[in-house]
């Protein structure tokens, strides 16, 4: 019983840590937008970086993805999805913004 409550506390603490990290990352992104402390481009880049970090925090603390205990095929599926997203979403943006540039200049 003692060990069971300890693991409960440990698991609860993990979710609370994840929530705290996500909240801090969100707060920074919103504060930068509200105060416009940086220039436009650097604010957008910072928001993108914060978003990527927060996705990793969510995968780690909420979805419990890690390279030790997660089944390998799940990690492979996640990696394959990331590749597909880079090709399809990145390719779309590349083609469309290139087209826009060529038509407007």
């Amino acid at each position: 019983m003692q060990t069971s409550t300890q693991t409960t506390d440990h698991m609860m603490r993990n979710y609370i840590i994840g929530f705290g990290l996500a909240l801090v990352l969100t707060a920074i992104a919103f504060a930068l937008t509200a105060t416009k402390a940086l220039g436009l481009t650097s604010t957008l880049v910072t928001i993108a970086v914060l978003a990527i970090i927060q996705v990793v925090v969510h995968l780690r603390y909420f979805l419990h993805i890690d390279f030790k205990s997660s089944p390998r095929e799940n990690i492979l599926a996640l990696a394959f999805t990331a590749v597909l997203i880079v090709i399809m979403a990145g390719g779309t943006l590349w083609i469309m913004f290139d087209l826009h540039y060529r038509m407007m200049n």
């Binding site: 698991m11 609860m12 979710y15 994840g18 929530f19 996500a22 909240l23 969100t26 969510h58 909420f62």
Partner: peptide, 15 residues
Amino acid sequence: IFLLLSSTTFGFASV
């Protein structure tokens, strides 16, 4: 904040 909290509370349910 609603969504972040709800993810955390669902985590508590899983625990």
